[in-house]
Amino acid sequence: MREITREEWLHQAIDALRPKFEEIGFPLPERIHVSVGFGYGAKRESSIILGQCWPTPLSEDGVNHIFLSPEMDDSARVLDVLIHELVHAADNCRSGHKGDFAKYAKLLGLTGKMTATVATPELAETLKELADAIGPYSHAKLYTRGRPVKPEGPKGPEAPEEPEAPAAPSGPKKQGTRMIKVQCSPECECGGYVVRTTAKWIEVGMPICPVGTVMEIA
């Protein structure tokens, strides 16, 4: 039997979770794009954004895009983060982490700080059962802070793992200044709109130019 891809695994999970959203009167969109990857604002040097959902107006085909961090490989935890992002999709990202988002997230069994929810014990058990039903999550964890290795020496094999210094990935180097330059494409109707902001706000989400295009770090 062919091993399903991680995206197929995630779509199976979404289909299995749809009835829960129907039960609370907060249905999911008919179509949702879901992938594994880093969302805008994710930084190697600090905490990684575990999930991110994009609203339909920013998608060419008018479909929500959900991204889940490649640092996660525990099936139940992946489903925990996925259901958080699905609440954003059902709300089309209108409420942020307040209002309808908070209301329906709690009804589904998410608890804690709404920007970083975790499953209640009851929901966690349901998600574990769902993960077991779908099968192994078809993903190999990405170690962005270095692959853990057991140190050699008298401490023995039970010594805690320490991360191995990772090689630098491809892509632009991190800017050293506190204020980060963010620019829109020169081909955009805005003409290449430029702003400067901090890493804190980039983690929340990339700025959007006056005509609605998502900007990029220059």
Rank of each mutant, 00 (worst) to 15 (best):
residue 106 K to F: 10
residue 161 E to F: 13
residue 110 L to Y: 01
residue 3 E to L: 13
residue 46 S to E: 12
residue 137 Y to P: 04
residue 123 L to N: 02
residue 93 C to G: 00
residue 94 R to K: 13
residue 130 L to W: 06
residue 115 T to W: 10
residue 174 K to E: 15
residue 182 V to N: 05
residue 81 V to N: 02
residue 61 D to V: 01
residue 144 T to G: 05
residue 127 L to G: 02
residue 45 E to T: 15
residue 27 P to Y: 05
residue 139 H to W: 15
residue 161 E to H: 09
residue 19 P to C: 04
residue 20 K to E: 15
residue 119 A to E: 01
residue 202 I to Q: 00
residue 194 V to T: 15
residue 11 H to Q: 15
residue 191 G to W: 07
residue 181 K to F: 03
residue 176 G to R: 11
residue 214 V to P: 08
residue 87 V to K: 03
residue 116 A to M: 12
residue 18 R to Y: 04
residue 149 V to A: 13
residue 188 C to I: 11
residue 141 K to S: 05
residue 7 E to P: 00
residue 42 A to E: 04
residue 202 I to W: 00
residue 98 K to D: 11
residue 77 R to T: 11
residue 43 K to C: 06
residue 151 P to A: 12
residue 132 D to H: 12
residue 59 S to I: 06
residue 157 P to M: 10
residue 56 T to S: 13
residue 201 W to L: 14
residue 139 H to K: 09
residue 152 E to H: 09
residue 38 F to K: 07
residue 3 E to N: 09
residue 214 V to Q: 14
residue 116 A to K: 11
residue 1 M to Q: 10
residue 148 P to T: 11
residue 81 V to E: 02
residue 36 V to W: 02
residue 135 G to M: 06
residue 27 P to T: 04
residue 150 K to Y: 08
residue 128 K to T: 14
residue 42 A to C: 09
residue 178 R to I: 13
residue 146 G to Y: 11
residue 11 H to Y: 09
residue 101 F to S: 01
